[in-house]
């Protein structure tokens, strides 16, 4: 009989499972330690090395940070953060209606749109940006079309700030769209209907029900886009033609042309620190669980 046999205590079973869990997580942990944590520590440490050196084992110094604050690097940091912020705002406005349609209005069409947009993720960002170059350059697709249709002479539309934002909006659209759509999907239909039934107009339903309840999606999408576009490098270079220098471009040139690795590392550290602060402040200001009424205190 089963009951008479010595039944393993549930705790014993749990500890066995616990061992397997830790074991299964081990390769991943090792990879991250080697390929993520160690390199980052390396960057942070390198930022304290004397300028223009390549060895890691020297006496730490603050020289690089002094240089950063004496020079105009804060400008590129502001550009990066500003462009990233602008990208987030544009994407919120563009994506919310589309995400809403995907989550609540389209039926079969939703997966078509989803696939069409997700597929683009697999085409190298550079190629897609280069498409805009061809579209917008002098005698490009847009200019040429306007010239033949309306006889309007259009110069190059490239190398300005709106085009950089367009590029970032374009590249990071999926990162906003999909979290938003997931967030909106989480709003129960009946709750929206109840608001409607209780006299709310469509706009009121949006403001008082849809928006607050889809806020987790809004937040995740915004943070993702913000972090990614703050670190973006290709948009400003390919579409912006060095019109503005972003922090990522600064960092890259310290590593390549200037061969000043410690300064580049210090800039990276500063940049990582800043984005982390932004992310943590955002996460702390919006207590997700509380927003969703999930918290029981």
């Amino acid at each position: 009989m089963k009951t008479s046999a010595p039944v393993p205590a549930p705790s014993a079973d749990a500890s066995g499972s616990s061992l397997f869990g830790a074991l299964a997580a081990l390769p991943f942990g090792a990879l991250m330690l080697f390929g993520f944590v160690a390199p980052l520590l390396c960057v942070v440490w390198f930022g304290f090395m004397p300028p223009k050196t390549f060895a890691l084992l020297q006496a730490p110094t603050l020289a690089n940070y002094v240089t950063i604050f004496q020079q105009t690097y804060f400008k590129s940091i502001l550009w990066s953060l500003g462009l990233a912020g602008l990208t987030v705002v544009c994407l919120l406005v563009i994506c919310y209606p589309l995400a809403f349609a995907l989550a609540k209005i389209f039926r079969g069409g939703a997966s078509f749109v989803t696939y069409a947009i997700a597929t683009s993720l697999f085409v190298s960002e550079n190629i897609r940006l280069f498409g805009w170059v061809i579209g917008f350059m002098k005698n490009g697709v847009v200019g040429g079309t306007l010239a033949t249709l309306f006889d309007a002479q259009v110069d190059s539309l490239l190398y300005n700030i709106p085009v950089i934002v367009l590029g970032m909006v374009y590249v990071y659209l999926p990162f906003m769209l999909f979290p938003l759509a997931l967030g909106i999907k989480m709003v129960p239909d009946q709750v929206r209907e109840a608001a409607f039934d209780l006299g709310a107009s469509r706009w009121q339903v949006f403001r008082k029900v849809d928006l607050p309840l889809s806020l987790p999606g809004v937040l995740i999408g915004s943070l993702l886009v913000f972090v990614l576009s703050a670190g973006a490098i290709a948009e400003a270079k390919i579409l912006g033609g060095q019109k503005v220098v972003t922090i990522a471009a600064d960092i890259e040139s310290e590593f390549t042309y200037a061969q000043n690795w410690p300064l580049g590392s210090a800039l990276s550290t500063l940049f990582i620190g800043l984005t982390t602060v932004v992310v943590f402040v955002a996460l702390a200001r919006f207590d997700l669980e509380k927003l969703l009424g999930k918290k029981r205190d």
């Binding site: 009946q190 709750v191 209907e193």
Partner: peptide, 11 residues
């Protein structure tokens, strides 16, 4: 209407 799921506003 009072819904089958009640549809209270969770937030």
């Amino acid at each position: 209407m009072v819904f089958q799921s009640l549809a209270l506003f969770p937030h």
